[in-house]
């Protein structure tokens, strides 16, 4: 791939605690992400995915190693410079949406625009385009509390895109959505990488995203590793029927002494409402 490298990590390590209680959350990780690329970071819970994302997003400093964003080494930057970098170069999409409850959809999207030289006025054309693209035109004056999960995540994506950052970092963006809405959000992020020439780096447990990703990085015990194919154990979500990797799924329950996995918490909630009904659909594998 010849596209420009937009995000680069060189041997980054992050340790928490000291001496005997030291934990290496990220251990000597190096990676390169180019414009227009959609890269997934997958791995078991507690493998250091979110810590790695925080370091790449300039929210957390690595204990060792360097991070290069758009050709600039950010390791020695001051907090104020890092804040400016986050505003200009990085868009965040979170699992919990993280919208501002008192602000309308439009205000939420425009919130980071005040940090740019053009300001909020300069971002109105971009706002209109994003509202249109993400199907939020009708909801632009609504408060987050009145939105569905899918709408909230679309607002969060629009907010991440308002300053036209070259990098989008998404942490489990489909984790709180049902399979249909999750699919919709994934496709939006995929389109952003393709059409807006952004680098999209996504932490996810959702194996369905693999099909649309350019690359999948496997993080385990803080280190990037080659993922072995036998680590997949595909089963069907008894609620929505989607394929789920039993090894990496984080949403699961016990039913009749069996582990039942789901694609999302929404499906787990539905299962818990009518376990007997869905019990018959559990994948016998």
């Amino acid at each position: 791939m010849s596209a420009e490298v937009i995000l680069q990590a060189n041997n980054i390590t992050k340790c928490f605690g000291r001496d005997a209680s030291e934990v290496r959350a990220v251990d000597d990780v190096s990676l390169k992400i180019r414009r227009g690329e959609m890269v997934l970071i997958m791995g078991p819970s507690g493998s250091g995915k979110t810590t790695l994302l925080s370091i790449l997003g300039a929210l957390l400093s690595p204990t060792a190693g360097s991070v290069i964003v758009c050709g600039t080494d950010i390791s020695a930057m001051k907090e104020s410079e890092l804040a400016a970098l986050r505003a200009q170069k990085v868009g965040f999409v979170f699992q919990a949406f993280n919208l501002f409850e008192a602000l309308t959809v439009k205000e939420n999207i425009l919130f980071p625009a005040s940090l740019t030289a053009q300001g909020i006025k300069g971002a109105t054309a971009r706002l209109d385009a994003l509202l249109d693209k993400l199907g939020l035109n009708e909801r632009q004056n609504a408060l987050p509390s009145t939105l569905s999960g899918g709408e909230k995540q679309r607002v969060a994506i629009a907010r991440a895109m308002i300053n036209q950052p070259p990098i989008i970092l998404a942490d489990e963006p489909t984790g709180n959505l049902d399979s249909h809405k999750g699919q919709e959000v994934m496709m939006i992020l995929h389109d952003i990488a393709r059409d807006d020439d952004c680098a999209v780096l996504m932490v996810t447990h959702d194996p369905r995203v693999e099909e649309i990703a350019d690359r999948v990085l496997w993080l385990e015990d803080g280190s990037l590793r080659d993922r072995k194919s036998e680590l997949h154990s595909w089963v069907l979500d008894p609620v929505c029927g989607m394929r789920v990797d039993e090894w990496t799924a984080t949403v699961y329950t016990e039913f009749e002494n069996r582990k039942v996995v789901f694609c999302s918490t929404r499906c787990l909630e539905r299962f818990n409402e009518e376990p007997e009904f869905y019990g018959d659909r559990i994948d016998p594998k």
Binding site: G57, L85, A87, F100, L115
Partner: peptide, 15 residues
């Protein structure tokens, strides 16, 4: 606190 932390993640400085 949570919303302030989000604002910080989005690029707002400590000041």
């Amino acid at each position: 606190k949570q919303e302030l932390a989000i604002a910080r993640a989005l690029g707002f400085g400590n000041g």
